[in-house]
Amino acid sequence: MIEYRSVGKTFSGGNAAVADFDLVIPSHTTTVFVGSSGCGKTTLLRMVNRMVEPTSGQVLIDDVDVASRNPVELRRSIGYVMQASGLLPHRSVLDNVGTVLRLQGVSRAETRRRSLELMETVGLDTALADRYPHQLSGGQQQRVGVARALVTDPNILLMDEPFGAVDPIVRDELQAELLRLQRELGKTIVFVTHDIDEAFLLGDQVVILAKGGQRAQVGTPADILAAPANDFVRSFVGLDKGGRELHVEERDGVQVVVDAQGRATGVLKG
């Protein structure tokens, strides 16, 4: 469990990115921070592995304040995936995947074995093992990023717009892959995106953020769609212009569900 307790962050220069933020992130589920650019998503995410230190309040992992943990050890125990994959350009794919194992002093042979295993887990051809990152496609680089984050089997996985820089088709693929992985692995995932559809697809708990890290609404996708907290949320999730409204049309006794553009999307059962 990750817990934010009245967390605030004011950057030098007096810019208050986040103020008085509270949240509980249950273990073994995916929580998505979603909001427009500059609302404080990355700032909140990076407080978990002490890449950002809060200026007030506390972040706790399993009831232990992260401020009391050694930052380097803490980071090695948490997987982190970022938008631009952040792979080391001077190391092969296999070495990139095994980076944290080597930092933890795991032997070369064992690191190699586990890295190859992880490449398979995330759907990467092991023939790519000896390439350098710049010799991979964007989608493959993101898979390497995910493999690197998972190689130590961490309990927590932080993902900062990991699929933001790939084309929509690869993005769909990577999202499906993440859902499959999460069904198998049951990690505590904190995921950042500005795409509400991605948030609803991946999130067990969705946190909609307004400027300054304000919680606009927290809940399951169904909760939020059923009862948007205010106009900001209604507009952010696309309920205001009827974009998410579905209706039913009868065809020969079958109830067909049709979306706002008039496209048939399925049939109603029960």
């Binding site: 990076r46 380097v72 980071r75 970022m82 952040g86 350009p89 944290v100 930092l103 690197r148």
Partner: peptide, 15 residues
């Protein structure tokens, strides 16, 4: 050296 690479290396746990 790319700042993004350094940032990511730090986040991975390089001292």
């Amino acid at each position: 050296v790319s700042p993004a690479v350094l940032d990511s290396a730090r986040a991975s746990g390089f001292g």
